[in-house]
Design a protein around this nucleic acid. Structure first.
Lengths: 195, 195
DNA sequence: AAGAAGTGAATGACTATTCATTCATCTACC
DNA sequence: GGTAGATGAATGAATAGTCATTCACTTCTT
């Protein structure tokens, strides 16, 4: 029987290899070697190289989305929801640096399939943000002149770029906590002093 | 004599092809056809395929950096500096969609050379932001608990992701002006209502 | 022993790069 | 001012290397 174990081992190995070399420079034989299976075995579990990439994104990001959505469901305060989103996202990225790198690099592919992907699971992800914003606006906590459609992008972009701190060497000095606080400060209160 | 004209024609064509297909899926023959030259001619102007990509980034982003730096030099008010940065960046991206797409996609390559590139010209670009923040902090206009090193990333990430509005189809409805205003509102005043 | 799972060498498609050749333009000499 | 020779930009067919995918064969499991 094809084992779930092996499937996972290939996913994890592929994540590692994609993170290091990028999708196009990663060879199937690299992934096979990393996973300690034969090249051909990969094709028992995945249709083709691209299928591996999409699976990495689907399964691994899927886990994070689920986790964040579950944590936010419990909350009613839009400020806390936002805080949770930021903290969960950043700590997930810091914890799984390979995945973070794959997201940085590969979510930007111009390939049709990746674009499609970006339009489904990814969209779901950033729409969590606009939902939070809308709730906050209804509650009178967030300004109504903020357009959730633009703010959600700004927000995700900021988080994504900031999380590079942990994937580019020499920038390790910031903790998840202080980074989260910075993002919260920036987006909730803004940069200007309140005089 | 090798003409500057032809060099430019190749750069522009390459930008177009890279934007459409991404670096790895772009064939030299695609670029040659787009530029209406022979495949071999490309190698009279560039060392290899990668050299073309780096040249696109260097030359085209270089132009934007120069333009922004020049515009900001005139200013002393940190709020206006910030506003100018945002507006110039967004309008440059909206104007040159091919370049915007190449930046979205290719600036994330994990290739050594691209990473190196990201560490020079790109660094210079986002350091313009931290400089503005520091000036604002010295002037007492920006909060001093904001870390410029983190804020600059958040800021660039937000701008970059927001500018995708114009490269992904079906999102054309926002103007540069209203998008700029949103970003300014978000980063300067924050999302919370001031009650 | 049969069927499933695993193997990895062989295949074949793809394309970046090269280079022998062409040809338009320029220079020098009468 | 016209001709012969020199120059080097431009061409595109041929090369050479890479690697995803296949499949004939082996090993494991029940």
């Amino acid at each position: 029987m094809k084992s779930v174990d092996k499937h996972n081992k290939i996913i994890v190995s592929a994540t590692k290899v994609f993170a290091k070399k990028g999708f196009f420079n990663a060879r199937i034989s690299d992934i096979a070697k990393e996973a300690k299976v034969a090249d051909g075995t990969i094709y028992l579990y995945f249709n083709n190289k691209f299928d591996i990439l999409i699976s990495v994104l689907e399964e691994e990001i899927g886990k994070i989305i689920d986790q964040i959505e579950k944590a936010i469901e419990q909350e009613t305060d839009p400020v806390k929801m936002m805080t949770i989103f930021i903290e969960k996202h950043l700590s997930a990225m810091k914890q799984n640096k390979n995945l973070a790198e794959v997201i940085h690099i590969e979510l930007r592919q111009s390939d049709r399939l990746v674009k499609e992907y970006r339009n489904t699971s990814f969209k779901q992800y950033i729409d969590v943000i606009s939902t939070i914003i809308k709730k906050g606006q209804e509650a009178g906590i967030y300004r109504t002149d903020i357009l959730p459609d633009i703010a959600k992008r700004a927000f995700f972009g900021a988080l994504d770029e900031v999380s590079r701190i942990w994937t580019t060497p020499g920038n390790v000095k910031y903790t998840v906590e202080e980074t989260s606080e910075q993002i919260i400060a920036l987006f909730l209160s803004g940069m200007q002093t309140t005089t």
